[in-house]
Design a protein around this nucleic acid. Structure first.
Length: 628
DNA sequence: TACATTCCTG
DNA sequence: CAGGAATGTA
């Protein structure tokens, strides 16, 4: 049945990743990184990726374009554009950098001048022409290298990106040489240098945290496990191997202390904050390099601004040998592999690590300890960045909590721990729209871990000043999401999947999640219309002769029934408009039944059609927090 | 064929 | 509220 809904393009633009993703924590990934040789994403620091994104962003066919588009989408529906959509909507390689894509208004002269300046800088820095003619320059070079020509632009585009990941080292070096030739702007270099030093400083802090964590981690294991002998052997070489083994043994244990979990949580939070802080700094600093105007993270012509520090970073890559990457994940943004990363910050998927992977073992099966490692997903760095880029710096996030929908429904005890805290806080704040729950309930402050707290003090401070706070992307829908959805129903009865994505920014959408949300609203409607029909028939039975005698107020039985269903806690002020719409719906039912239209099996469709046009926009407050 | 929606059921 | 059947749409 098609109600010709105006915004009902519920095509499944969600990511197709239905399969559960077992994510390694961003920190843990450090320890096992060497076990992931085939996952290029896993071996590149988020920071370096971000920085490296800049240079290729000047190429017409590069995805730097939708990197920006996504970043722009905080207040737009484009925020819901999924990775695949992005790919699908990627501009053809023929689109020149200057062309505004996706129907943007023409770029102002000011912006064009700005872009020209930036491009000039980048051109000098990179030592390579920007707007090469199509089929010329790097593309044809790359095509030629693989001996594959004659494919259409989009294929070539993908092919190029694929190949970029395998770009041989000598190409990087030749790029470096080109960049080095462009050192004609000392102040900019200094700026970049300062930025780089800040990054390194951050990375040192991260490393300290990691080491601290491992200390505690090992200590606990020494207590728990019988392999004290191996602990004693803790030389540097054995360090990782030992940890891997211990963790693997832990896999079989069902009972895990919450302290460790919390500690990991805290550290992960801090690490991700630090990373986002770095990102924030990059965004803040870079404009100062070449521009006099504030940054526009979301403007594709301006992306080139980031080329500067990138080239600086990259310039060093030739000077720094590839080293052991065990603990250098965040510390070494110079690895050539990183540089060859296809810059898919937005589109990239988190590292999927099968439980039975031979060399990468998760400490504990997820199903054994429901809220033990599900929390890893929300803090995956790529998701942090993705969210950051998609929703901007002011989007909020939820603290870690169990995520699978199965948990929500079938294991009440799994909801015990983080949940109560969330629910309680939600309750407190829910009465005030726009007052969002403070993030990071599981931060060090709540953990009674003074050592961690001290170590994290600096990062914590930065995080608190940092608008780019950590983000938790939910893998599944939680009761909070359900509650939020119900409240949204007061505004929209027929939300499109895009709207849903916009208003659930902390949810990692896939086909399943999208369907579930849609199903929720379908259920909401069902209840709504059942009530309407019931009360309309009741009115007729009661002898109400005129529609005008039927009204819906907050005192109405009908309203009370609806409010009980969608706003059970009654902590939300139902908008007046909803009462009007309810009244209209009731009238529709009354009229239809009075006219005996209900003999037609599809008599309700006409009513649905009317009602779906009455959807109004959900307030922005709903966008920013997973629960108000 | 895939998806959205309603309807029915538990 | 979810699952599934039925139905409609593209």
């Amino acid at each position: 049945m098609n109600l010709s809904l105006p915004d009902q393009s519920m095509h499944s633009s969600a990511d197709d990743e239905d399969k559960p993703e077992v994510l390694l924590p961003c920190f843990r990934r450090n320890m096992y990184e060497e076990s992931l040789p085939s996952t290029p994403y896993s071996s590149s620091s988020i920071i370096s990726q971000l920085l490296r994104k800049t240079l290729p962003a000047k190429r017409p066919m590069d995805e730097g374009h939708y990197f920006l588009c996504s970043a722009d989408s905080g207040q737009e529906d484009r925020s819901s554009v999924s990775s695949k959509d992005s790919m699908a909507e990627a501009p053809s390689p023929n689109v020149s950098t200057g062309a505004s894509v996706e129907g943007e208004p023409p770029i102002s002269d000011h912006l064009q001048a700005k872009r020209a300046r930036v491009e000039n800088i980048i051109r000098v820095m990179a030592g390579s022409p920007i707007n090469r003619p199509h089929g010329d320059g790097e593309k044809s070079e790359l095509e030629g290298r693989d001996g594959r020509d004659g494919r259409d632009g989009r294929d070539a585009y993908r092919e190029t990106n694929k190949r970029k990941q395998r770009l041989p080292q000598h190409q990087e070096h030749s790029l470096d040489a080109g960049r080095r030739s462009g050192r004609n702007d000392n102040s900019k270099d200094e700026e970049c240098h300062r930025l780089k030093e800040q990054l390194h400083s951050m990375q040192r802090l991260l490393r300290q945290l990691q080491e601290k964590f491992l200390q505690v981690y090992n200590q606990e294991d020494a207590d728990d496990e019988m392999n004290l002998d191996e602990s004693a052997a803790g030389s540097e070489e054995d360090f990782e191997r030992k940890n891997g083994r211990v963790v693997e043994e832990c896999k079989d244990r069902v009972k895990i202390g919450y302290a460790r979990e919390s500690l990991e949580d805290a550290l992960k939070q801090e690490l991700s904050r630090a990373v986002t802080e770095c990102v924030a700094r990059v965004f803040r600093k870079i404009p100062l390099v070449g521009m006099s105007t504030p940054p526009r993270m979301c403007s594709s012509p301006d992306i080139g601004m980031e080329g500067k520090p990138t080239s600086q970073e990259a310039a060093q890559s030739s000077e720094i040998p590839i080293k052991s990457r065990s603990f250098d994940y965040y510390e070494d943004p110079h690895s050539p592999q990183d540089q060859t990363e296809a810059l898919s910050l937005v589109v990239r998927k988190p590292v999927v690590t099968p439980l039975n992977a031979p060399s990468v073992k998760r400490p504990f099966p997820v199903h054994q300890a429901p809220f033990q490692f599900n929390y890893t997903a929300p803090l995956h760095d790529s998701q942090i960045l993705e969210h950051l880029l998609k929703y901007g710096p002011h989007s909020s996030f939820l603290p870690c909590m169990p995520t699978t929908t199965a948990l929500d429904r079938s294991s009440p005890d799994a909801v015990e721990l983080p949940w109560d805290a969330i629910a309680m806080r939600s309750k407190v704040t829910s009465a005030h729209l726009g007052h969002h729950p403070r993030p990071s309930a599981l931060g060090p402050d709540n953990l009674c871990l003074p050592h961690v707290k001290l170590e994290c003090a600096e990062l914590q401070g930065m995080a608190e000043r940092n608008p780019y706070m950590s983000l938790n992307i939910q893998e599944g829908l939680t009761p909070s999401h359900l509650k939020k959805a119900k409240l949204m129903f007061f505004y929209t009865r027929y939300p499109s999947s895009n709207v849903l994505k916009t208003y659930f920014p902390d949810v990692k959408f896939n086909r399943c999640i999208t369907s579930q949300l849609i199903k929720w609203f379908s259920n909401f409607r069902e209840f709504y219309y059942i009530q309407m029909e019931k009360f309309a028939r009741q009115a007729i039975v009661d002898g109400v002769g005129d529609v005008k005698d039927i009204s819906v107020s907050r005192d109405s039985e009908l309203f009370r029934a609806l409010n009980m269903h969608y706003n059970k806690a009654n902590d939300f002020h139902v908008p007046e408009r909803f009462l009007e719409i309810a009244e209209i719906t009731l009238h529709e039912f009354y009229n239809a039944i009075s006219a005996s239209k209900d003999s037609d099996p599809s008599w309700k469709k006409a009513i649905y059609k009317v009602i779906c046009k009455l959807d109004s926009e959900v307030p922005d407050e709903f966008k920013t927090s997973s629960y108000l």
